[in-house]
Design a protein around this nucleic acid. Structure first.
Lengths: 207, 207
DNA sequence: AAGTTTACCATGCAAATGTATGGTATTTGG
DNA sequence: CCAAATACCATACATTTGCATGGTAAACTT
């Protein structure tokens, strides 16, 4: 039952997994057909039957979108990493993904969130280490003590957020950097997002 | 547009979220009706329309299962934590969850995987700290250097896995513990799972 | 008392969906 | 060369699904 998939079957399986991950729901036969340019759902149906026969998926008959993916190796899915946090201050966010990271399905992202890879040990006092992936959520209001990603002038920083009476203070984890007080001097100040989580994959190599 | 949901509408929304998380796909009208004991899909339909009107979901008309959940606050969902790793060696896996942890979103675990909370700094050399959540996947074959959860006699341990020629060695992160060599002396030896990732939530409180 | 909201049901219908069957063309292995 | 596997199409059909409409009953405004 460990038969190999053909090229096309592999592509369809990949598409199934991709859809289930990015959209949350598996596609219908019609959607698959449309994606691959097939004029007929039956073509897809036959491919799915072949894939199921080889044990890679399981279909719940009669139900729409009821395709269960049974491949164990596909636990990890690639997600784009759009920037790096390095050496305390400067943060670069590239227009395109600089890299992808294999994220377990457990760490599915909050909507619109993005990933940044941490370089260097500037955040080590927050127990975040080089190579770790931080999940940044742009849709939340920052609360005191949270680690935020913010833009000052042209640079971006990753610091702890504290809202005082009339000002906002950004405190670095690294004691070498003084807190930044936000006032009129920073007209372009903007909170990009809040670091809601840290993830580190252990599956690839030993640390 | 910030109208409150009624009790029933709230229950239906919870069900939608729950299904999307546990099964990966939103239910159909019929499935919702069946779950709540309704004899009619139209009842569900009207509830969904009401929920949509209040802005909590968004429906893609004509498409099956195309219910998008738009509630921002629901980014974090509780997942059970079934045990603790503490003080180097002993690991306790409780039959029921000892706690729940708020995981970002829509989180879908690798199949059959479970979560353990780390207590103490016994794994700090692997950059895993007290309070962190480790994701354990029981369905993978361990490779050298990976951190595994294993059972020896009655105790369970979390250590690095190394397969030598004729034996298996479990190496502790903590230098105070000597490596354990697996042979006939441990008839009940069993790999419970592999630590595939570490997650730490940053949203609640400052570290 | 009259209106509104909420919560349900029944029925009907068009479109979407999964499935079965039969057919053609190409490639592959013996 | 021939059989089998692969990849696709067309057509047909039963369900599933979403949706619209109309109706009943209770609870709550006003």
């Amino acid at each position: 039952m460990k038969t190999e998939l053909t090229e096309i079957q592999k592509k369809i399986l990949d598409y199934l997994i991709d859809q289930k991950i990015s959209k949350g729901i598996p596609p219908t036969l019609a959607e698959i057909a449309s994606h691959f340019g097939y004029k007929n759902r039956a073509t897809v149906q036959q491919h799915l039957q072949a894939i199921e026969k080889k044990g890679y998926i399981k279909k719940n008959p009669k139900l729409s979108r009821a395709i269960e993916i049974t491949v164990e190796e596909k636990f990890f899915i690639p997600r784009p990493v759009i920037g790096e946090v390095a050496a305390g201050n400067p943060l670069t966010i590239y227009p395109d993904a600089i890299d992808t990271v294999e994220l377990p399905t457990i760490a599915r992202m909050p909507k619109d969130s993005f990933l940044l890879r941490v370089k260097g040990d500037s955040l080590k006092d927050a127990y975040i280490f080089s190579g770790d992936i931080v999940i940044v959520n742009p849709n939340l209001e920052p609360k005191n003590g949270q680690i935020v990603v913010a833009i000052l002038d042209d640079a971006a920083v990753v610091k702890r957020f504290y809202k005082k009476k009339n000002e906002i203070e950004l405190v670095s984890e690294n004691p070498d950097y003084k807190p930044i007080v936000i006032d009129k001097k920073y007209p372009s100040f903007k909170i990009v997002g809040i670091v809601v989580g840290v993830y580190r994959s252990m599956s690839k190599k030993a640390v």
